[in-house]
Design a protein around this nucleic acid. Structure first.
Length: 516
RNA sequence: GCGGGUGUAGCUUAGUGGUAAAGCCCUAGCCUUCCAAGCUAGUUAUGUGGGUUCGAUUCCCAUCACCCGCUCCA
């Protein structure tokens, strides 16, 4: 069967409009706005009957590719990867050690005049020692001599020696009206520092106090690092090995945007690959190739993705010393003609294990079973992607406009991710056709997710199945009553073929296997 | 977080300072022999909260949500 693929435009208009995808998701029960009847909640989404099937299918394929049947390694042996399901809430010290508590609460100030935003702890305030004149906000890290230029303009002839420098966070907010912002031309334009704590806070126990404060995990990775020793001591794995986890994570995003692409509650699929520091570079390359292949296996076309190395200055705190981070990016309709992040493959070095060793006092070093003098803290290669982001990607990729069919479009899902593999449709609801269809349905449903639909005319039912991306429709008609044959309709081509009713299961199993 | 835009049924659109209209969809029944046909009946809406007014979906204010741009994205 030929795969219809939408031709990518060469101009800057994507072939699919996000509005249509969002509307389809709501109409057919893939994704709803969370708490919609109360007006919704910015950054939260619910997965409907078909959405949860799609999400579970993608989740299961990831788990199978990582844990159940991990890839074959460079030495020809299967890799060792074990699963984990850690708690969303952990001891809050976890997030101090990981750097999230310190790094996620940078106070920011906005300038009302220039609309620019600054980190408060990166700004110094030059305060005239004689108390006369304006206070000047300048960058702390002032390589370009900005302070001098600002002084010349607003310092009323005073030299730098006539000022005292104070970090902005130490300045009383009641004095903000005297301050001229770093790029402003008049005083009093800076807002009070706002805390941008991107972790959701909660309280453990029935009484709320600072002592009982805890956090919803902003990444699943830390649960893996916390259990690194437990896994090592209980499951006979040896370096190199991986621990994989799928689960919810929470980030209080400043600005959720683009449907489920950036939401405040989302689901991650992360695997931490523990290896010898000398092998980290090689394993990073291995996982980049492996992960790209996986995305292709669930139906994402190679030409819709790019691999992008992070620039030095966008590297995370944990990746600074290593081989860096590479993103696999997808050409979403809302990033077109640009790309948006699908998965990051990061070299986290020994940052996390070292941090937890220091903060917890628990030794995290690995002792080579063949040479107990060879002790080291493993380096980590982390392929981390968003499951909910994967759902969006698969939807965007599958959405295919086709004006020549009643629905005007169809979802070109790979059968492995499709919520329904086949639909069984009696041509009309009489002459014993519904009974035959029900019998076939009862047989098939033991082996695959199938739909039985008897209502309305056949065209509407085909259209409905096209909209939810069902690869095959099996139709019972009057010939079936005579010769026990049914028609199989192929979603992408709308072509039909006739086969014996008792060959249907065999046929579908073979076809679905081939197309998976 | 800033600026701009939008908000009437699941969707697309009417309309009005005084009972909110239609088509499609959906549900039930009839009909229907291969791609959203037809008939009958039915469900469903002025995002939320204030204010002005005898009366607000309409005018005003606030708020929420969504979209676009900027910002942010550990």
């Amino acid at each position: 069967m030929t795969q219809a693929s939408p031709a990518k435009n060469t101009d800057d208009t994507p072939t699919v409009d996000m509005k249509d995808i969002v509307a389809l998701c709501k109409r057919r029960g893939f994704i709803f706005q969370a708490s919609e009847i109360y007006g919704g909640l910015n950054g939260f989404w619910d997965y409907g009957p078909l959405g949860v099937e799609l999400k579970n299918n993608i989740r299961d394929l990831w788990w199978k590719a990582m844990v159940t049947t991990p890839p074959i390694g460079p030495d020809g042996e299967p890799l060792q990867i074990v699963g984990l399901d850690s708690s969303i809430i952990q001891n809050p010290k976890t997030w101090v050690a990981s750097g999230h508590v310190g790094g996620f609460s940078d106070p920011m100030v906005d300038c009302r005049q220039t609309k620019r935003r600054y980190r408060a702890d990166h700004i110094n305030i030059l305060q005239p020692k004689d108390g006369e004149g304006h206070w000047l906000a300048v960058p702390q890290d002032d390589d370009e001599g900005i302070s001098e230029k600002r002084l010349k303009k607003f310092g009323k002839g005073k030299s730098i020696g006539a000022f005292e420098a104070t970090p902005l966070p130490e300045v009383n907010t009641s004095d903000y009206d005297k301050i001229i912002g770093p790029d402003a031309s008049e005083p009093g334009t800076l807002t009070e520092p706002k805390e941008f704590n991107l972790m959701f806070e909660t309280y453990v126990g029935a009484t709320q106090s600072e002592d009982s404060k805890a956090y919803l995990r902003p990444e699943t990775a830390q649960g893996i690092f916390l259990n690194y020793k437990n896994v090592l001591d209980s499951s006979r794995v040896r370096i190199p090995f991986g621990i994989a986890q799928i689960g919810k994570a929470y980030r209080n995003e400043v600005n959720p945007r683009n449907f489920v692409f950036r939401s405040r509650e989302f689901e991650q699929m992360e695997m931490e690959w523990f290896c010898h520091p000398d092998d980290a570079k090689q394993w990073r390359e291995f996982w980049i190739a492996e992960r790209k292949r996986w995305w292709e296996s669930i139906g994402i076309k190679s030409e819709s993705m790019i691999l992008r190395e992070h620039d030095r200055d966008e590297l995370s705190h944990y990746a600074k010393e290593g081989e860096g981070t590479l993103d696999i990016e997808y050409q979403f309709p809302f990033t077109y003609p640009g790309f948006g992040e699908l998965e990051g493959i990061a070299h986290r070095c020994d940052y996390d294990l070292t941090q937890h060793q220091e903060h917890s006092g628990t030794k995290m070093q690995y002792i080579d079973p063949d040479d107990n003098q060879n002790r080291y803290i493993p380096h980590v290669i982390e392929p981390a992607s968003g499951l909910t982001r994967a759902v969006l990607t698969v939807l965007c990729e599958a959405y295919t406009v086709d004006p020549d069919r009643p629905s005007g479009m169809y979802l070109n899902f790979k059968p492995s991710v499709a919520p329904k593999k086949a639909a069984i449709l009696p041509l009309v609801a009489k002459d014993g056709m519904p009974e035959l269809a029900t019998k076939l349905y009862m047989d098939l449903r033991e082996d695959m997710a199938v739909d039985l639909d008897i209502k309305q005319n056949i065209g509407k039912r085909y259209a409905r199945q096209d909209e939810i991306g069902t690869p095959f429709c099996i139709t019972i008609d009057s010939d079936t009553l005579q010769d026990q044959t049914v028609t199989i309709r192929h979603r992408n081509t709308m072509e039909q073929e006739r086969i014996s009713i008792d060959k249907v299961k065999e046929y579908l199993t073979e076809q679905l296997g081939q197309m998976a």
